[in-house]
């Protein structure tokens, strides 16, 4: 009987495990990168503190508009810089598409002046949106 040589046994090995390593690594990387790129909370803001908070309802994710107001006073929707008139249009559009369940969520930096937040509240009221929520850090 022929004894298998060391050379042949090496050639028969197929390294599928490192391949799976790399594939998983790439999947995780792209998932994480795309999540952070399109996240509603991509812009870092210093949120105000509050104690009378409510928990987030997971089923509201599709019928809300998250507006981030950064410390420089700019509005961002879905990670995109948005002008105030465009923002008002987005609120009206959301109200038309989703009806009464539509809500506007404001993520505003705590150091900002009230004048930067008030137009969002006025635009929401004019569009018929009753649920306006402020993102805060629970005390």
């Amino acid at each position: 009987m022929k004894t298998p040589s060391r050379r042949r046994s090496r050639a028969l090995k197929f390294g599928i495990t490192p391949l799976i390593d790399i594939v998983f690594l790439l999947i995780i990387f792209f998932l994480a990168a795309s999540h952070f790129a399109q996240s509603e909370t991509a812009e870092a803001v210093e949120l105000p503190n509050a104690s009378e908070v409510e928990a987030e309802q997971p089923d509201q994710q599709l019928s809300r508009l998250v507006v981030t107001v950064t410390a420089d006073g700019h509005y961002h929707v879905g990670g995109v810089l948005t002008e105030s008139d465009v923002l008002a249009g987005r609120i009206r559009q959301g109200r038309t598409e989703h009806g009464e369940v539509f809500e506007v969520r404001i993520r505003a930096d705590r150091t900002l002046a009230y004048r930067t937040v008030e137009p969002i509240m006025i635009a929401s009221a004019r569009a018929g949106v009753t649920a306006v929520k402020f993102a805060v850090i629970e005390k």
Binding site: L47, E54, V132, I137
Partner: peptide, 20 residues
């Protein structure tokens, strides 16, 4: 990934639509 995120809570208001 989990350590870098601060949990955000919500402070709700209820506006009267179109009352302005």
């Amino acid at each position: 990934a989990s350590a870098g995120q601060i949990a955000e809570a919500l402070l709700p208001t209820e506006l009267s639509a179109g009352s302005l």
